[in-house]
């Protein structure tokens, strides 16, 4: 589904990604872990071209999306993204946050979009918040709404960029729970996170990134029980 070939990204003179090759199949739940500054967020943001790769190619559903002729906006409609800081639109109500893109991109009629939004809100138990503004919600509620906002576009892949890192500890659970549900429904997911428990439980594959490369990857069982790379051993000893 997603193929990454020799991806490199340089910010000014700082090389953040140093040649990444990766293949992500439909239905996989890939969890990326690693120390901060390892390039994992940059890698994720390259997948939907929020960062423009310096070198290399990314293919999505048989299309080279790094080709400048590719319509980025169409591509992004199929890739939902969830951010660390939620990035809900504070000037719009919860309902408008969810329906904005489907309506403005003319993918759904206003009525369809609203029905869909209410269905999604009901699913996360927040349909009574439809008419409120994001600033009146807790972090966990905001992040769950950010997730359904992305789902409202019916994406084929969901990208999560440290979705629980900005949350108070007692709100992490509700967000992870929703992500688990998505995973169980067969959504293809790429998740950058520090939640090792989530990686162990949900991932089909765990990648360890450090210094701009994927140092090691394995099934979650092997990854945590039997790490080979000394850097990964060191990392795991610190976080587990």
């Amino acid at each position: 589904m997603i193929t990454v070939k020799n991806l490199e990204k340089t910010f000014d003179k700082n090389m953040v990604l140093k040649g990444i090759n990766e293949e992500i199949a439909q239905g996989e739940k890939v969890v990326i872990v690693g120390p901060s500054g390892s390039g994992k967020s940059t890698f994720l943001r390259c997948l939907n071209l929020l960062e423009t790769p310096t070198k290399g190619e990314i293919w999505f559903e048989g299309k080279n999306i790094t080709d400048p002729r590719t319509n980025i906006n169409e591509l992004r409609q199929k890739m939902g993204m969830v951010f660390q800081h939620f990035n809900l639109f504070p000037h719009l109500t919860v309902l408008e946050n969810i329906t904005l893109a489907p309506i403005k991109l003319e993918l759904q009629s206003e009525q369809q979009a609203e029905e869909n939004a209410y269905r999604l809100l009901k699913r996360i138990g927040l349909e009574d918040k439809a008419k409120t503004y994001p600033n009146q919600l807790s972090g966990g509620q905001k992040q769950r709404i950010a997730i359904v906002r992305a789902l409202a576009m019916n994406p084929k892949v969901m990208l999560f960029d440290e979705p629980t890192s900005a949350l108070d500890p007692e709100m992490v659970g509700e967000v992870l729970e929703l992500m688990k549900e998505l995973a169980n429904e067969g959504m293809t997911m790429v998740v950058v996170t520090h939640e090792m428990g989530f990686a162990r439980e949900v991932a089909t594959r765990v990648l360890f990134m450090d210094q701009g490369v994927i140092m090691e990857q394995n099934t979650p069982e092997q990854f945590f029980a039997n790490p080979h790379n000394p850097r990964l051993q060191d990392f795991l000893s610190k976080v587990l």
């Binding site: 591509l75 409609q77 893109a101 906002r149």
Partner: peptide, 8 residues
């Protein structure tokens, strides 16, 4: 970024 990531 959130707007662009939705395909707008």
């Amino acid at each position: 970024e959130a707007g662009r990531s939705l395909g707008l």
